[in-house]
Write a protein that binds this DNA or RNA. Sequence first.
RNA 1: GCGGGAGUGGCGGAAUUGGCAGACGCGCUGGACUUAGGAUCCAGUGGGUAACACCGUGCGGGUUCGAGUCCCGCCUUCCGCACCA
Length: 821
Amino acid sequence: MTSPNFSDDAVDPGAYDPAALEAKWQQRWRELGTNHTDISGGDRPFYALMMFPYPSAEGLHVGNLFAFTGNDIFGRFHRQQGHTVFQPLGYDAFGIHSENYALKVGVHPMRLIPKNIANFRRQLERAGLMIDWRYSLDTTAPDYYAWTQWVFLQLYNRGLAYKKKAAVNWCPSCKTVLANEQVVAGACERCGTVVEQRFLEQWFFRISDYAQRLLDNLERLDWSDTTRMAQRDWIGRSEGAQVRFSVAVAPGATTDATHLAVFTTRPDTIFGATYMVLAPEHPLVEQLTTDAQRPAVSAYRERSARQDIVSRKTTKEKTGIFTGSFALNPATGKEIPIWIADYVLMEYGTGAIMAVPAHDERDFEFATKFGLDIVRVVAAEGEDAGTPLDAPFTNDEGGHIVASAQFDGMPVAEAKAAITQWLSGGEHATPVTNYRLHDWCISRQRYWGPPIPIIYCDSCGAQPVPVADLPVVLPDIPDFKPDDSGISPLARHAEWYHAPCPRCGKDGRRETDVSDTFLDSAWYFLRYPSVGHDEAAFDPSITRKWLPVTSYIGGNEHAVLHLLYARFITMVLHDMGHIDFEEPFTRFRAHGLIVRDGSKMSKSRGNVVNPDQFVEQWGADSFRTYLMFLGPYEEGGDFRDGGISGVRRFLERLWLAARVAHSDGVPDPVVQRKLHQTIAKVSSDIPRLSYNTAIAAMMEYMNTLRKGERVPHRAEVEPVVQLVAPFAPHIAEELWERFGHSASVFDSGWPAFDADLAREETVQLAVQVNGKLRGTLTVVPHITQDDAVAAARAEPGIAKFLTGEVRKIIFVPRRLLNLVV
RNA sequence: GCGGGAGUGGCGGAAUUGGCAGACGCGCUGGACUUAGGAUCCAGUGGGUAACACCGUGCGGGUUCGAGUCCCGCCUUCCGCACCA
């Protein structure tokens, strides 16, 4: 394996054998504790967190490895920069996903999960990640979920956990309640089954109380913009007014209600409100319905109650029915009909709207279908109240008010405030802010989760389990399959189900719901550095040192759910004095997605990359480096099997260069310059996660070194070993050792950048004539404009385009000269 | 429908602030070495031309000495959300 461009006296370097040397270093790291973090003593703590995986039976997905490798590079780089880096990894092993799989293969999750975890652990170690396994965790271990239950109790004690009967998303296939976030286009996120509505008693967390704070804090977080935007949209703040409409009782209606409240963001259009609509579930529907309309209204309500959420939310066609009653428009004093329709949702605003068909898409469609009045009250420039509308005019920026008494001519923005003010004089309106964010339903009528630590007592009611009694251990029962009763499988296990009331000691019954997996992951980052501390969820002094998390990397699929819940739980724990920060993740970056040959990897396509196979064939170092070379880390990339060979070749060349390098004489100045440019490039690329270009820069350097056609000098190779170490840790350790170092390359620091050595003696100056490239000059960097022009004129290839008088000269030092003739 | 990305060679992708478009890699072509080559090395590789010219960053306009990059109007595509008043 010699190469003609290194001289004949090159020693036989020995072949690069990744399998052997990677095994050697993985064992060495284990033995020496190289990846261990000095939790109590280390300086400059750097908590490099990655989202923990769900340990599936299929093993590690290449997407997991892509995510982890990116974090690993970031962590290793900062370690070389002198930080004490803490890079833990655990397993998010509770939840419907595992439970469904366990049901499918007929193996109990308590048996299945440990097997999966062992397999993951093997694969993760094989990938060469710098993980301190002493601080791993598993959300299904009682010594972890004891503290998940503790977190629940904190919220409970704070009045932030409550139980209510609620319309919930019920998946008939998974036989469980889903969070709104787990319903995708009306179907179950996990199995794709159409979701139904059911009414069940559920535990909720009052995350909506924190909506404004969750929104405000976004401004000061160093997070990916897309993620912050997704959270902002999810919280969905909207400003408007609550307006009260007097009810005019119609014959046969039994109402004693005098008012109906609506929420609107367009109080400026109230003169155009020609009817009202209530959600079918609205509590006043019954009373407002007249005798004549009662049969039709009841039929409509029943139909929409039965209807699954899909057709309710995706059907375009509007439906609805008149209640027979009227309300008074507080602005016009006119009677307007009250309808019910399922396009109005009970869970948002007040469950009732004032309909302004002229200025709202949905109201327009509804009014057109049912022949209701459409009254224009906003006009664009050059229009007036009489300008016909063939579509609703919904723009709330450019228009002015018409047909609205004293408000005519007022710009919309101004009218919003003025009309609210005017209505509030008669106590008809109040400014109100609404959020789309709903409270977090954390109950699951399933088996595979942490039992919610509550005991129901006939005398004392719901009682929290005392902290000293935690964990409420999930019993190992063979029959964990859910049925469609809506009662958790745990209720069938009498021995577990019956427990004494913590307050009076009489017979009580345990809460049989388990909590949402998202609760497990909403606080796990607090646990890692305190793993092993049995007295508390997290040790106060360790937590002060290590948290908040310095850097968090994960998938954007968790942009709203997980990240929002984690922020919320952190805020609550902060407010209760358990921690001194209220935002858990100082910096967050979302990584991209890996596709294969241009399309998403899926089992059905049969294009899933098996990491084991690639690691075995090419080595972990090549595989890691290739994953990072595919594309920008934050955008993901396209995995093509052939591409890995280029990365492997690069590592082979590094191997060869390091093995033949000698330390006689001095390094070549040209190579030296390129080296320092490469150090600068890699050092600035890694912090911004531009791994692909960092790798390209190192490849370029190796090309420069090869082109030298001489045996490389040790000083030309040794620093590259340090640069490549975060990407390809095993080969780096091996070469570092062969250079005679006894300590790990990761404790060797980072190559120093020398600007003087990096500086070019000449630069290429592009010469344009009328903006078109006509030649290139090799000049000293500080050349003056006049000298540059003279040099350009002396160049025949350029001069021939200088046909007339030069009218203008644009000179950009070091870059370009443009002569305009 | 709304919100947010993204459109650059045969392919993945480069191009901090407007300043030599196509770095790096794959693939491909030719060559060297070889019993052999899916190994290794060397050379070439946006289109076009004998060589220039010229044409090239989804499409159409614009600003500028100069536009992949900025502005206006479209098209395509991916990902969220999906009747949120």
